[in-house]
C-alpha cells in the first residue's frame, strides 16, 4: 500500500496536508477501498467551523453511511465542489484531486496529534 509521507493521518482514515496557510483534508486510499463505490458526499459550506475529532460531513457508499471526521479544528476556506459531481474522484485519486475541504487551522500544533505515514500504514495493517 502506498501512503504518501507529505502529510499526516487520523485513526479514522482522513489525511491532512499543509498547503500554504491552509490544511487540505481528504480520505485515504484504504478508506476508499473499505467503502466501495461512493454514492453520496455531504461537505460543509465555506465559512463553517470544524472541530478536530468531530464530524464535518458524511460519505455514503453502497455499503454504508460514514461520518467524515475532521483531523484538525478551524474554519473551512475551500470546498472541493467539483468532487460532489464526480464521486469516483474520491477513490480514483484520493491523494490529490480527491481532497474535500481546506481548513484555516485554529491551532496548527494539532497536527502533532496525527500519525505519520509509517504509523498510519501500520494502523491499516492492523485493521485489514
Amino acid at each position: 500500500m502506498q501512503v504518501p509521507d507529505d502529510r499526516k493521518y487520523a485513526q479514522t482514515h482522513e489525511w491532512a496536508k499543509v498547503d500554504g496557510d491552509l490544511i487540505r483534508v481528504g480520505i485515504t486510499d484504504f478508506a476508499g477501498e473499505q467503502l466501495g463505490d461512493i454514492i453520496f458526499l455531504d461537505l460543509p459550506e465555506v465559512g463553517a467551523e470544524v472541530r478536530q475529532g468531530a464530524a464535518f460531513g458524511e460519505i455514503e457508499s453502497v455499503k454504508a453511511v460514514s461520518d467524515l471526521i475532521a483531523p484538525i479544528s478551524g474554519e473551512v476556506r475551500e470546498v472541493n465542489e467539483p468532487l460532489m459531481d464526480d464521486l469516483d474522484g474520491v477513490t480514483s485519486d484520493p491523494w490529490e484531486a480527491g481532497w474535500m475541504i481546506a481548513v484555516a487551522p485554529e491551532d496548527p500544533s494539532q497536527m502533532a496529534a496525527l500519525m505519520d505515514a509509517a504509523a498510519y500504514a501500520e494502523h491499516c495493517e492492523r485493521e485489514a
Binding site: D37, I39, F40, E60, V62, L87
Partner: peptide, 9 residues
C-alpha cells in the same frame, strides 16, 4: 444484476 451505483447516484 442491477447497477446499484448509478441507481443510487
Amino acid at each position: 444484476r442491477v447497477d446499484e451505483v448509478t441507481a443510487a447516484r
